[in-house]
Each structure stands twice: as structure tokens, then as C-alpha cells.
Write a protein that binds this DNA or RNA. Structure first.
Length: 435
RNA sequence: GCCGCGGUAGUAUAGCCCGGCUAGUAUGCGGGCCUGUCGAGCCCGUGACCCGGGUUCAAAUCCCGGCCGCGGCGCCA
């Protein structure tokens, strides 16, 4: 799209356009100065293109401007496209005018061109420059593909995208710590999950999904936790856990397929191949998982939750990158989780695990008021504070099920990075509040 | 929060075990040469031992405390 500042994007300049006059605008990615020949690699939102300035043919002012340039300065270049096999991608621009729109200070606090690696801590401190790096752009583009495909798959199944409130009244859902906010003089909290509201919406709209932030003020200080994260949630009436598992595995399958097809170049930049996904994704019952662990000498009893070290062993035993663990003990799951009809100690629940990382978790939900009150009471939760939720179970709450998936964790699987902080543009953790 | 490892130029690292150097290298930056680079090349230069205390003739190096980071664990409906 032509704008006030540019006629084409860098990536779209091709040898076939030889002779055409163009205007580009972007950042000085690299300068290679050979004396009589100066190569400026210009980067914009789309990619890179080379601008070549020769001493003999170029005007003196042009040379003067090039000599002032610093890395990451913003420039606008008017010139003529020239096909040349010696240039990267076989094409370059011979400039007639170069304007400096913003001269960058030097030295840069971070190497954008990718010659010198930086620690994640440094990268997050200098995040805006870091995001200009080709690797980060690849991660963002892969995430974009994932979000698009998730929306497409869910819409094709009749789900509608919704938003639930992020400022909520009660902090009584369980163990997680919430961030308090002052709401017109009253105490309120940032939502830790859309759970209760998405259930209420499923009771009206039948199939809903939401992609939105959630907040948890946990002590958790690991490469898989953030204080603010994007949660991908679905909730559907007239489905059970097995129905929504099928939706989840199809979403994963389609996302991986699309990323492999559409982000080939980005994956190459990242030097990574996402795992092979074939349907159905293997399912392991919790009880069987515990037995497998015990047979490997791991000390664990039925009823205990599976920890990260447990999942590491399980992943080895199962020898598959992606798997479901199903039918967890009822008492280690959230109060709204539906116990199995024939064996209420276990529940209609599941986790989707990649290697040793929980990507998503879901269940059938209780839809009978008395059972819900019983579940709350058993967990020592204050029934009264859930009245805003329970009330609607009197007026046609259908059987329903759903899941929630961490967006940055999914991105870990799709990009091969090891920390959710790396794949989150501006991560919020216990220590980081800026930038 | 606990355990482990670490903190050296703007960035990334060597040196630390075995105390003594003008603290090495890459990249960046400044200067010089160079008309086809694509991590350009070559030459010259520039710039650093986290903070505080201790041991010692002498500390980047050993010891103690602090701060910060990374990993593992814990916590995380």
C-alpha cells in the first residue's frame, strides 16, 4: 500500500521491477562501506532490501548523507530498482535521494543485526530494539498465523468470539493470588481467568471463545509463568470433555499445519521445526500415567497432582511430543469440574501436554446447582460469594465443557524458544514492569 | 521462597581452579585503505573487572555480606 512515505515495502521489490522508480522507508539495518561503493541494507516491516551508492555515478550530497548514517536510523530512499545478480535477492535500489527521518544515537544498547547475541535479560531491557531483530519478527508472525487459524477453526464450528469482564468482584475462587484494584473506592481484582463468565455465556450463546489477557499474582518464577498472559478459552454447551478435546486437537493440528506451510521462512530464521501432529493425539488416563511413573521408580501415589519432574519422566516413557492426560482426581481439579458419573473420585478432565509443559487444560463442567454447591463446600469455598454465578443454574444451565490454553506456551511449541518471556512482546513478571 | 550456577568495555565472551599481565577476543564506535559487499576484508585506535568489607607485600582471581541475573524446584481453581 502506497503511503505518504513509501510506494512499496522492501520485501516486495523484485528483479522484475527493474527500471521502476520507487520510494522506500525503513531502518538502516547494516552498512557495508567499500569506499567507492556503499551498500545500505534497509529493513522495514516486511523485510530487507539493498540500496547501493556508487562514488562515480552518485551526487556528492548523497555520499555525504550516507556517511552520516548510523545503524537503526530511519531513512526514506527514492530511487530506481535495478536487477543485479550480485545483490541479495538479485535486486537493489540505486538512489536518487536519501532523507534521514530520524538519526539514531550510537552506540546501540543491543545489536539488532544479529551478529552478537545478547542475554534474555538484556534483550528485555532493550526490548524495542530486540523486537526489530529478525528472530523476534519471525516469532510474532508465527503467533499471528496461530491466532488466525484458531479463530478460523473455532468459527467454522459455530463458536462466536466474546469478551468477558477483566475487573471482577470476588477473589474467592481458590488458591491463586489476584491483583487488587481500587474500583470507584471499592476493592476489586484483575481477572485470573474468564472461567465463570464464559460458562454463563455458553448458557446463552451455546459456543463461545475468548482470546484475552488474564492476571495471576503468583510466586511462580519459571520460564513458563507470567503475571500477565494471554489465555485462549472456549466454552460450549451440549458438549462434554471428549467433545472439546476433539476441538482442541483439531485446533492444534491446523495451527501446526498452517505454521509449517505459511511460516516456512520464519521457521528457518528460528532454525526450528514444530513437532509432527497426527490425530488423534495420544490420550493417557491419569491413573495409567501414575502407574507408568511408579513402574519407572518414581514415588507418586494416586491422588497426587503431576509435577513438572513427573511430566519430564512421563514424556520420556510415552515418547511422543504431544499428549493428553485425562480423568484427573476430582479433588485436585477446580470446583466446577464434573466428576465422572460412574467413578466420582475421578473427573471428566484433561490436560494437553507438550513435552513437560501443560499447554491447555479443560473439562466437562458441573451444570446442576446442588452438585456445584457441594463441590464448593467440599473445597472450603464461600458459597455465598459465588451467588452471582450459581443463580443462573436455576434458569436453564445446559451441560457444558471447555478448555483454556496459554498463548505464549503454545508459541513455545511453535517456535522452539524456551521461555514465555522471550515470546511475549512486553512480558510482565515478578520483577519486570517496564518496558 | 529454597537449592545450584553466574555477574569482566555498549553487546557477547577469555582469564578465576593455581593471586603478580600494558586484563585477551569478537562485535560496536573513531580514523585509514578499498567500486560488488551479502556476518565484507585489512591496518591503527577507543572502551570493562556489580557494590561493600576482609585476607595478602600484592585481588578480576581467595573469603564474607549485599544487590542483580539465569536454571531447577516450590507455589500456580
Amino acid at each position: 500500500m502506497q503511503t505518504k512515505y513509501k510506494s512499496v515495502m522492501c520485501k516486495d521489490i523484485e528483479p522484475s521491477m527493474s527500471g521502476q522508480s520507487v520510494t522506500i522507508a525503513g531502518w538502516v539495518h547494516q552498512i557495508r562501506d567499500l569506499g567507492g561503493k556503499k551498500f545500505i541494507i534497509v529493513r522495514d516491516g516486511s523485510g530487507l532490501v539493498q540500496v547501493t551508492v556508487s562514488k562515480d555515478s552518485a551526487q556528492k550530497e548523497l555520499i555525504d548523507i550516507v556517511e552520516q548514517l548510523t545503524l537503526e536510523s530511519v531513512i526514506q530512499v527514492k530511487g530506481v530498482v535495478k536487477a543485479d545478480s550480485r545483490a541479495p535477492r538479485g535486486v537493489e535500489i540505486v538512489p536518487t535521494e536519501i532523507r534521514i527521518l530520524n538519526l539514531a544515537k550510537k552506540p546501540l544498547p543491543l545489536d539488532v543485526s544479529g551478529k552478537v547475541p545478547a542475554d534474555l535479560d538484556t534483550r528485555l531491557r532493550e526490548r524495542v530494539l530486540d523486537i526489530r531483530r529478525l528472530e523476534m519478527r519471525a516469532i510474532v508472525r508465527i503467533g499471528d498465523t496461530a491466532l488466525r487459524v484458531i479463530r478460523e477453526v473455532l468459527r467454522s464450528k459455530g463458536f462466536v468470539e466474546v469478551f468477558t469482564p477483566k475487573i471482577i468482584a470476588t477473589a474467592t475462587e481458590g488458591g491463586a493470588n489476584l491483583f487488587p484494584v481500587i474500583y470507584f473506592g471499592r476493592e476489586a481484582f484483575l481477572a485470573q481467568s474468564p472461567q465463570l463468565y464464559k460458562e454463563l455465556l455458553a448458557a446463552s450463546l451455546e459456543r463461545v471463545f475468548e482470546i484475552a489477557p488474564a492476571w495471576r499474582a503468583e510466586e511462580s518464577d519459571t520460564p513458563y509463568h507470567l503475571a500477565e498472559f494471554i489465555s485462549i478459552d472456549i466454552e460450549a454447551a451440549f458438549m462434554d470433555y471428549e467433545d472439546v478435546m476433539k476441538i482442541l486437537e483439531e485446533v492444534i493440528y491446523e495451527v501446526v499445519k498452517a505454521v509449517k506451510q505459511e511460516n516456512e521462512e520464519d521457521l528457518k530464521i528460528l532454525n526450528y521445526t514444530p513437532p509432527e501432529v497426527s490425530l488423534p493425539i495420544p490420550r493417557v488416563r491419569y491413573v495409567d500415567a501414575v502407574n507408568m511413573l511408579r513402574s519407572k521408580g518414581v514415588e507418586i501415589n494416586v491422588g497426587e497432582d503431576l509435577s513438572t519432574p513427573h511430566l519430564r519422566v512421563l514424556n520420556e516413557v510415552l515418547n511422543t511430543p504431544l499428549y493428553f492426560i485425562t480423568e484427573f482426581p476430582t479433588k485436585i481439579r477446580a470446583f466446577y469440574t464434573k466428576p465422572k458419573d460412574d467413578d466420582p473420585l475421578f473427573s471428566e478432565s484433561f490436560d494437553l501436554v507438550w513435552k513437560h509443559l501443560e499447554l491447555a487444560s479443560g473439562s466437562s463442567r458441573i451444570h446442576i446447582k446442588e452438585q456445584l454447591i457441594k463441590a464448593l463446600t467440599e473445597r472450603g469455598l464461600n458459597v455465598e460469594s459465588f451467588s452471582f454465578f450459581i443463580k443462573w443454574f436455576d434458569y436453564g444451565m445446559p451441560p457444558h465443557a471447555g478448555w483454556g490454553m496459554g498463548y505464549s506456551r503454545l508459541l513455545l511449541m511453535l517456535t522452539g524458544r524456551s521461555s514465555v518471556k522471550e515470546v511475549t512482546l512486553f512480558p510482565r513478571d515478578k520483577k519486570r514492569l517496564v518496558p
